[in-house]
C-alpha cells in the first residue's frame, strides 16, 4: 500500500530524515518508535504533506501513485489520515460543520452524493459515542477549549468518520490517562481492517499493549536502524534505547 524509498526531508535547511525505507501492506499495523528528536513526527508530517518540510530526495508511493506530487488535500482524499499530536483550535467553526465539510469533500472526490445535515448528525452522534465523547462536543468550536484527552479522542473520531486507507497516529497516547488511553485504543482497534493500514508513531511502548502492532521499527537520527515484531517494543521497554547505541539526550539536543 505505502512504499517509502530513501526518503530525505529537511526543515529550514536542516536535514531531519536521512534516508527512510519502509513498506506497509494493507491490513498491517506498524509502530515507529524512537527517542525525542529522532524524526518520528517529521515522517508523519511529510507523509501528510505539511509544506513546512521539504523533501530533498527519495520517493513515496501510495498504491503505486506518487504521493509526493499531490497537494495535502489530494493526499487526504486518496486516503491518508493524520491524527495530530497537538490538534489546533479553529474558534467559531463548529466541530460538526468541520467534520461534515471534510466527509463531504471525501464523498465528492469518490463521486458519492454529499450527506445532508440530518444524516450526518446521526452518523456523528453514533461515532462520538464510540470514542466516549459527549455529542455536545459536536456543537463546540473545533478543539476549542477541549482538554488534551478530548482533543485526542476528537482525532480518533475524525479517523472513524473519514475511514482512511492509511491512518497515521502521531503520539496519540501522549498526555492520556489510563482510561482515556483505553478509549482511544479501542477506537484505533475499531479502525483495523483488511483494506486499511495503520502507522503509529510513539515514544513509549505502553500504547502497544493496547494496540498490538505487526511490525515495530526503531527510528534514530533520521534513519530506521532496526525493525522487528512486537517483541522489539518489549525489549525497548526493558532495555531503553541505549542498547541500540542511541543516546537519547544527544538526539534530542541535536534538535
Amino acid at each position: 500500500m505505502l512504499s517509502i524509498k530513501n526518503l530525505h526531508a529537511s526543515v529550514e535547511g536542516k536535514e531531519i530524515l536521512k534516508g527512510i525505507n519502509l513498506e506497509i501492506k494493507a491490513g498491517e499495523v506498524h509502530a515507529i518508535m524512537g527517542p525525542n528528536g529522532s524524526g518520528k513526527s517529521t515522517l508523519s508530517q511529510v507523509l501528510a504533506g505539511n509544506e513546512a518540510f521539504e523533501v530533498t530526495e527519495g520517493e513515496v508511493t501510495l498504491n503505486g501513485e506518487n504521493l509526493l506530487e499531490l497537494e495535502t488535500e489530494e493526499r487526504a482524499r486518496e486516503g491518508i489520515f493524520l491524527a495530530f499530536q497537538y490538534p489546533v483550535e479553529i474558534p467559531g467553526v463548529s466541530n460538526l460543520q468541520f467534520l461534515r465539510t471534510a466527509v463531504n469533500a471525501m464523498r465528492t472526490h469518490r463521486g458519492e452524493p454529499e450527506m445532508n445535515a440530518a444524516e450526518f448528525m446521526k452518523l456523528a452522534k453514533e461515532v462520538s459515542k464510540q470514542v466516549d465523547l459527549d455529542p455536545a462536543f459536536l456543537k463546540r468550536g473545533v478543539n476549542e477549549g477541549f482538554s488534551g484527552g478530548e482533543k485526542k479522542r476528537n482525532e480518533i473520531l475524525q479517523a472513524l468518520l473519514l475511514q482512511p486507507k492509511l491512518a497515521i497516529l502521531d503520539e496519540t497516547d501522549s498526555g492520556l490517562d489510563i482510561d482515556a488511553l483505553k478509549v482511544v485504543s479501542d477506537g484505533v482497534n475499531a479502525l483495523r481492517a483488511e483494506d486499511r493500514a495503520i502507522l503509529m508513531v510513539t515514544h513509549y511502548q505502553r500504547l502497544l499493549n493496547h494496540i498490538v502492532p505487526d511490525y515495530v521499527h526503531v527510528l534514530a537520527g533520521g534513519r530506521i536502524i532496526k525493525s522487528g515484531g512486537r517483541e522489539l517494543a518489549l525489549e525497548l521497554e526493558e532495555r531503553g534505547y541505549g542498547w541500540l547505541g542511541i543516546k537519547e539526550d544527544e538526539a534530542a539536543a541535536a534538535n
Binding site: 501528510a48 504533506g49 488535500e73 471534510a102 471525501m106 472526490h109 473519514l162
Partner: peptide, 14 residues
C-alpha cells in the same frame, strides 16, 4: 495560521 490550514487540508478540505 498555517496549522489551521494544514488541519483543514489534511481532512480533504480545499
Amino acid at each position: 495560521s498555517d496549522e489551521q490550514m494544514f488541519l483543514c487540508r489534511q481532512r480533504g478540505i480545499d
